[in-house]
Write a protein that binds this DNA or RNA. Structure first.
Lengths: 260, 260
DNA sequence: CTTGGTCTCGTACACCGTACAAGGGGTCCT
DNA sequence: AGGACCCCTTGTACGGTGTACGAGACCAAG
């Protein structure tokens, strides 16, 4: 069997999943009885990776930190994965596996299917803020990601949009959720590291902005609009905005269906 | 005048812009006549940063690379910026300055204003793929970013959406563009580093996916749908999808306006 | 007992962000 | 003229990073 180092000498891959052999062969390690103490295992590594990324953020994550968490040397991990990037790609696909997929039969309303997938995707991005960057940088074609992607395509087929518009509609909805969840997740994470509540953090940023003279007047009505929202928290506002945007998108799809 | 090191001892900031003094004071260096050879300058540093990030990608960028580009030691740069993150935040705001803002008077149709801002924003994200990650990780409240943000808010006011829905509508449109541009930019960048055309790369990925047995049948109609698009390139498809999504969003806004 | 495969580890390299202290050139005051 | 001070650049150093390489330890098969 080829070792990690051997395989790395081939032409540059662009995704773990594009190397069909790697994922499956390495799983044989799971059934082993022995070797030295460490009960290492690809799945355990991935799980620990996800846990560390969730709790300490992508910036703090390193192979040495991960290895320490597993009571192992950094290089031990490299027997199971070729590179850090590969590991991240595996972790990315793993969290997509936690996303529950709704019933996609045409009997249930596509609107509900869409809302469910969208909220689930958003929750995923908020719970795992490190995911956003990886979705951008990797191809994201692992089995779980693909299952999600296919579910999304199925829902779009149920909308009644013409075939040539399904991909566009899919983009409109899920790139929106991606953008929204990304910004939201990072914002929450920043508040946490700054040790502030979301409202405190928000208020501070608003204050600094309105101190800059060139934005004083143009920002006046914006902040009035904020105050006019009453005693709502930042979370409340965000929730309402997300809901409104989602209904807007549903309405948009309906309009495009009617237009066809 | 406080040095970079001195100021860094204060409480942790979360954005360059939240430290009102830093941005402005340091500009005094611009008017200097002399010192040792290097004609360094905050603006020159930012410009070189943007150039490097564009040409070699965020992964290859480092303070030492940047310094070499400027014929200077790495530590020289630190006289003008406190940290690498601050520099990135400055670069981020700088590229937002290159985004032309349309005429926002209520006389021109808000639909055109929206389309123009959206396409501009998309182009920005594609031209500078490194921007996406920074928008996520930073607050993004520099002057140019704010100008863009205010313009967007102005357009949303022109739509006729009820005040409580303007933020949601804004999210729907611009988080979509953010998501779309991010994925698009990274995809193009990956093709470039892999030395393939977008079509080649796309075809390879599709091939690998359809090799995995669990997706064989569910992917069959998807790939049929792809082939049915005729001789269009990946770029063509993307262009059409973006256009369709944008019209869908416009239609969605109209529907929500009518509903109010 | 030997051989070979599976796994872990220690060491080492090149690179990263940046703290710190030393020093040179220019300007201004005495 | 001499000195003080400030602006800026530099060299060195520390603790981190991803990971290549080679040396083993353990186990199963011949």
């Amino acid at each position: 069997m080829v070792s990690a180092a051997d395989r790395a000498k081939g032409p540059a891959r662009t995704s773990v999943w594009l190397d069909v052999k790697s994922g499956r062969d390495r799983d044989r390690g799971r059934g082993r009885k022995s070797g030295q103490p460490a009960g290492l295992d690809r799945d355990k590594i991935i799980e620990a990776t996800v846990r560390l990324l969730d709790s300490e953020g992508a910036a703090k994550f390193s192979m040495r930190r991960l290895a320490a968490e597993l009571n192992v040397t950094a290089m031990s991990v490299y027997w199971y994965v070729d590179t850090k990037d590969d590991l991240l790609e595996l972790a990315l696909d793993a969290v997509f596996g936690t996303l529950p997929l709704p019933d996609l039969s045409t009997e249930t309303d596509w609107r509900d299917q869409l809302r469910e997938l969208a909220t689930g995707y958003r929750a995923l991005l908020v719970r795992h803020p490190w995911v956003s960057a990886l979705i951008g940088t990797f191809l994201n074609i692992g089995p779980h990601s693909m299952a999600f992607s296919l579910a999304v395509q199925q829902v779009m087929r149920n909308t009644g949009l013409p075939p040539h518009g399904q991909m566009g509609g899919l983009s409109a909805v899920f790139q929106f959720v991606y953008g929204f969840g990304t910004i939201e997740g990072h914002f929450i994470q920043r508040c946490a590291t700054a040790g502030m509540s979301q409202d405190e953090y928000f208020r501070q940023a608003m204050g600094t902005i309105s101190e800059q003279p060139e934005f004083r007047e143009s920002f006046a009505n914006a902040s009035e609009l904020m105050e006019a929202r009453g005693g709502d928290t930042v979370e409340d506002m965000r929730e309402r905005d997300f809901g409104f945007a989602l209904e807007l998108l549903v309405a948009g799809i309906e309009a495009m269906v009617a237009r066809a």
